[in-house]
């Protein structure tokens, strides 16, 4: 991310902020969608995060940390939705029009514990290092590694289970 752009946004330059929004909106949306598996929730999270960036960017001391700061805010908003969802026992229907493999992958992601999903997506999709994830989530590096290990194994297990169930229904 362009440090000068962030500095300009911090000074309240509207154009700079609009540019940040243009770059970050799809990233936040995609990240939230993989976490939540629901387009409306992902849109809500995106709007809220963009609003929070706008409101709080002037508080950001280290512009290098902009990216992890945005993901931390996004994760907070995602957690709020998950907290609300626990009471409702959410089920996810496979998306229409997408390939089966992707549908199962998104479904399987929703089936694993949220704390495992967080580190998997930050590592695999967003490409943060183990150290960066540990700092972002304020957990030891060892915990990040164990969550990646067990989370990925659980993801594969869920993915295969869903595929087996679907094959059973078709046969």
């Amino acid at each position: 991310m362009d440090e000068k752009l962030i500095e300009r946004a911090k000074r309240g330059e509207r154009e700079a902020f609009e540019e940040i929004m243009r770059r970050w909106e799809p990233k936040i949306y995609s990240f939230a969608l993989k976490h939540l598996g629901n387009v409306d929730d992902a849109k809500d999270v995106t709007q809220e995060v963009l609003f929070l960036i706008y409101r709080k960017i002037y508080q950001l001391k280290n512009t290098d940390a902009f990216s992890s700061w945005v993901y931390s805010i996004t994760l907070n908003e995602i957690r709020k939705i998950w907290k609300r969802r626990e009471k409702d026992r959410v089920e996810i229907r496979l998306p229409e029009g997408s390939s089966e493999r992707v549908g199962y992958a998104i479904f399987a992601l929703q089936m694993i514990p949220p704390e495992h999903r967080e580190v998997i997506l930050l590592k695999e999709i967003e490409g943060f290092s183990i150290k960066e994830i540990a700092e972002m989530l304020k957990i030891p590096e060892g915990t990040v590694k164990s969550r990646l290990f067990y989370g990925l194994k659980a993801l594969r297990r869920e993915y295969l289970r869903l595929k087996e169930e679907a094959n059973g229904r078709i046969q």
Binding site: E91, I92, E96, V102, F107
Partner: peptide, 17 residues
């Protein structure tokens, strides 16, 4: 599995019920 998901960027979102 995750790489497959990333290859297909324009997938429609799933519906939660």
């Amino acid at each position: 599995i995750l790489r497959d998901m990333e290859k297909e960027k324009e997938y429609p979102p799933p519906v939660v019920i």
